[in-house]
Design a protein around this nucleic acid. Structure first.
Lengths: 142, 142
DNA sequence: TACCAATAGTTGGTGTACAAACCATTGGCC
DNA sequence: GGCCAATGGTTTGTACACCAACTATTGGTA
């Protein structure tokens, strides 16, 4: 390996970007039949875990800008997976809830993680270790 | 930790996406004085390592779509860091070369990696280990 | 109670990111 | 030499992603 500190192959951030894009690319064909993109899938995961959620709360959970979530949520509403209603207790806030269809999708989604792990073909322990490292980095970067 | 296979905090891909975005966010204020975004910085790294490069070659090196690179390269040309000229040997191909200004920028860029490592505050060995894991994942996903 | 800073979402602008359609050049091959 | 599939880039359309500016509601406080 090169000793140049600016060598492309030495940059952790480059590896991080490429890895993220590559893994998202594995999800793409798996999510396509469900009509979801990867960020949309993450929103659904959050809502399957806890509902209703506000845009603010989603933004914290997914570490995404509200300005990114706003149109994304409208698209999920348009395809019928969720509802966006004002919270009666605080009219500023949105109460985002799953529709029947959105609830039902969870059964399909259960197939996704094993399919991804199979495609990657890496030992679970490696993935676990990676997850731990990534969590460290996220904590350090925030 | 939850035993739900769809729990957000268990998804490696979620951690990967958030980590990538978080680390890019660390670069942002460092690159801003140079007038570069993170992907543009990666292109510059590639060119500092080897020049001239074609769009095709850059696309392989950075694992980015030519359709993504095309406008990005025009922006880098517009701010004067590189030149896009047809390769006389093959008029289909672009020969992308650095300008004086682009060459000179390398000296500034040398400050970036240590600054990022400092901001992260993680031991180098951890980053090295992470890099190894990521390289594995990239290989597995391709 | 009337103001006003804080909070929740939305919108608009710039820059990726990818897929598909497109255009020009090239290199075989009859 | 002339056709034609392959190759290299560009363009278009959709969807993030972030920032800054904006609107509407809320809650404290003079």
């Amino acid at each position: 390996m090169s000793d140049d500190p600016l060598a492309l192959e030495r940059q952790v951030c480059f590896a991080l970007s490429v890895a993220a894009r590559s893994v998202v690319a594995i999800y793409r064909p798996l999510l396509e039949p469900m009509g979801l993109t990867h960020p949309q899938y993450l929103v659904m995961l959050a809502l399957w875990g806890d509902s209703p959620l506000s845009v603010r709360r989603l933004s914290e959970l997914l570490q995404l800008d509200p300005g990114t979530l706003s149109p994304l949520l409208k698209r999920l509403e348009a395809i019928g997976y969720l509802r966006r209603e004002r919270d009666p207790a605080d009219e500023r806030s949105l109460a985002i809830t799953l529709t029947e269809s959105g609830q039902a999708l969870r059964a399909e989604a259960l197939k996704i993680p094993p399919a991804v792990v199979a495609k990657l073909g890496l030992p679970i322990e490696d993935l676990q270790r990676l997850h731990t490292s990534l969590t460290q980095v996220i904590a350090a970067a925030s």
